[in-house]
Every structure is written in structure tokens, then in C-alpha cells.
Amino acid sequence: MTMVLSSHPIGRTPRRRLGAEIAPSIAYWFATPSIILLVGTMLLPIVVMIAMSFTDYELGALDFSFVGFDNYVSLWGDKTFWRSLLNTAYYVALVVPASVIIGLVLAVMVNGLKRGRRFYQIAFFLPVTSTLIAMATVWKYLLHGKIGPVNHLLTAIGLPGMEFFGDPSLVMPALAIIGVWSLAGFNMVLFTAGLTAIPQELYEASAVDGIDNPIERFFTVTLPMLGPTTMFVIITTSITAFKVFDTVAVLTRGGPQGASDVLLYVNYLEGFQYMRIGLASAITVVFLGIILLLSLVQAKVLERKVHY
């Protein structure tokens, strides 16, 4: 590159290409700030992170040594790590179906209204934009074992009250409820976009063909046409759910008895509380691997969606 640049002193026209040219160097100037940031805050850190996953480095330590796959081996035998992975999977398995189905049902119903669509869209979208941490504290109160209105409701209909955040078997479902609450409106909007893309003629054609029961219409026209959107929503929600951290950090801190340890929270503890950088990096590599895998599936789905 430098040779090319130096062979064209300023003020002389380039030999090779004829005709005035919009200096291609301007493109590099335009891209340079982003490239610096991309390398500095993304690519280089990732490389460093992967490299560190093969060391026993601890923050503050004076030196460190390469330990090969030791970190990965100890992860393999680590109960906390596996528990966090399973808890995360459990959370994803609870949140994804619920939030996708609720989002779909809401979108289809709101779309079928003649009036008031706007109101419902605002109402259902409000949780998405709200500060989750603040709302999580509200939820903690709502689900409180003694003074929470949910327990008031349960006792009112004759059920026993539940200590959602104190019972190891209830804590993940409780977190999942908050997750579903904060994601359903988002999925609803994605489905609404998919619904508006369905040509009206298809409904007219199905009416001519004698399908006039709305439920039958939903299963013969709407749902098949929403197929690609649904796939996409499922994967997007999975990625979001997989990254669960905020509610755990604020409400449960992995408790009770590690029943709500999730991958990112364990990673956070290892890296930033216990400062075991090497081990935390290994967890991050696992996390990155899973995220990239999901993204790959997402890209494939998107590709299909385009050709649909």
C-alpha cells in the first residue's frame, strides 16, 4: 500500500485509471474510526480472552503460566458450571415457548381488531421499554411470600401461598415469569410485522374456498404463512433468554442454594468477583460458542425468510 501511495505525489494524476475518480482513499477515511473501534473493543479483546482461557491468570497476580486445556477440564468436572448451564437451559425452555405463544396470540388478536389496536400495542409493549431492574424489584414485591398480591390472590382462591424466591424449585419459574412478561410484547411486535406481510388476497381466497371459521382460518392461512417469522422469533428469543443476567443479579444472586445460578452470573462471579480470569475466560468461550451457534441458525432462518 505504501508503495502505491508514494508513487503518486500530490498534484499528479494517477496513471492507471483514466477519467476523474472519486478518490477511493476517502472510503478508508470514512471506515477508519469504526475499524479502530472494531479491532480495539471487539476483535482484539476476543483474541486475548481466548488466549487467557488457556492460562491460570488471576487479576492482580504477578505472573501466570499457560495451562493448556486445564480450565476446560476443570469446567467439565465443575458442579457449579453444569448447574448454571442446566439452569440457563431450564430458563430458556420456560421463557421461549411461553413468550412466543403469548406474543403470537396477542399479535393475531390485536391484528383482528377493528378498533383500539394502538392501545393494546402500547400496553403490551410498555414492559419491553421499561427499565428491567426497576421492574424486577416490583416483581419481587408482587411475588413476595407474605405481602405480595400474587400470594393474596392465591390464598383468596384457596391455594397455599408460595415463597417464590425462597423455594429452590420455584425460583427459576418465578424468574421466567418476569422474563416472559418483558419479552412477550417484543415478540408480539415481530409477529405483527409478519402478519401485515401476509397478502389480504390469501384470506379472500380462503373465504371463497369456504373457510370462514376464524380458528380454521388461523390454522390454514395465518400460521403457515407465519412459519418463517415464528422460527426467527423463537431463535431471537432463545438468544435473549440465554443471556439472562439482570434479574438474577438483582433478585436472587444465584440463590437459594444455587438454584438460580445461570451461566452469565457464574461467569460474572468468576471473572469480576473472584478474579479468576483464566477460568472465567473458559466459561466465556463456551458462552460465545453457544451464542454463535444460535446466531448461525438465525442467519440460516433469515436466509430462508428472504427467499420465502
Binding site: 472494531l38 473493543t41 471487539m42 476483535l43 482484539l44 479483546p45 476476543i46 486475548v48 480472552m49 487467557m52 487479576l59 443471556k243 443476567f245 452469565l264 461467569n267 471473572g271 469480576f272 480470569i277 472465567a280 475466560s281 466465556t284 458462552f287 460465545l288 451464542i291 454463535l292 446466531s295
Partner: peptide
């Protein structure tokens, strides 16, 4: 690279950034 970075959440480069 942009497409790759699009998939990477902030938690991934967090440790080295913190150290830096």
C-alpha cells in the same frame, strides 16, 4: 467482521476490556 461482531454480546470481550 461486522456481521460476526453483530452476534457477539458485550459479555464476551468484557474481561479483557475490564483488564485494559
Amino acid at each position: 467482521l461486522v456481521l460476526f461482531a453483530l452476534c457477539v454480546p458485550v459479555q464476551v470481550p468484557a474481561l479483557p476490556l475490564y483488564m485494559g
